[in-house]
């Protein structure tokens, strides 16, 4: 077993510097690497590019890095729900590259899988396709999209072991699985770091080869953005 375990978030983020490009897993606040984000705030790295489906909310998630003005550019598919983000974007302080969600996921997966680029129909005929190669396949137009290049990928999983194997829970899997191995160094934080050999090899979502560093995360808040419930007598 090749041991990927590090003792804490400080060790896990060794080598993180200003001007780097980071991938951060999560959809909304679901499955975000909370420990890595806190450490990025503490280290105060500046002018970073963040690839993340969303930009957090005011006061939590990537919203913390935005407030601290550490982010130079965001690459996301949806950035509502964050006033500070909107303010920085409209004032020109923050560069934003909006990318269709499926394209964003595939640009991660392509980087993970060693494809330099791929064609997708998403965005053809829109602003998103401007300046990009397009091509007809079977009578339908497609846009050429390049794989991402990133220095660090920060992902969060439910369970993991020292070999770097990961298991995700529910919809917290989202972009986390696609970002593993898509950057030079993948750092995984887990809710539960289990003994080697306890995870069933049949049920591993990410094999350890895609992960360089893994650590036991702590103090997860796991905030809910839209707590929505039904009444006890509601049938549906």
């Amino acid at each position: 077993m090749i041991n990927k375990k590090v003792n804490n978030v400080q060790e896990a983020l060794q080598g993180v510097q200003s001007n780097m490009t980071f991938m951060l897993g999560g959809f909304g606040l679901c499955g975000i690497p909370e420990n890595a984000i806190s450490e990025l705030v503490k280290r105060n790295v500046r002018d970073v590019i963040c690839i993340s489906n969303n930009a957090g909310v005011d006061g939590f998630g990537l919203g913390l890095l935005l407030e601290n003005k550490q982010i130079k550019k965001m690459i996301s598919s949806y950035v509502g729900e964050n006033d500070e983000f909107e303010r920085q974007m409209l004032s020109g302080e923050l560069e934003v590259e909006l990318t269709p969600q499926g394209t964003l996921a595939e640009k991660c997966r392509a980087a993970q899988a060693g494809f330099p680029a791929f064609y997708t129909p998403a965005g053809y005929g829109t602003e998103v396709a401007q300046g990009k190669e397009t091509r007809d396949f079977d009578g339908k137009m497609h846009v050429l999209e390049a794989a991402f290049k990133a220095d660090f990928a920060f992902v969060k999983a439910w369970k993991g072991d020292a070999a770097g194997n990961l298991v995700f829970k529910g919809t917290a899997r989202n972009f986390n699985q696609n970002m593993c191995g898509a950057a030079t160094i993948t750092v995984a934080e887990v809710e539960e770091l289990v003994e080697i050999g306890t995870l069933d090899p049949n049920n591993i979502h990410i094999p350890g080869i895609f992960v360089q560093r893994i650590f036991q995360g702590k103090e997860y808040e796991k905030r809910i953005e839209q707590r929505t419930v039904r009444f006890p007598n509601e049938s549906i």
Partner: peptide, 30 residues
């Protein structure tokens, strides 16, 4: 979900807490 059974790890694309039905599956974004 009913109140008290919400799970932060199980949401829909609108970021609302949801439940799953028998036969449901979870998967990555790609």
């Amino acid at each position: 979900p009913f109140e008290g059974t919400e799970d932060a790890d199980i949401i829909n694309a609108g970021k609302q807490t949801i439940t799953t039905l028998p036969g449901a599956s979870f998967f990555d974004s790609a």
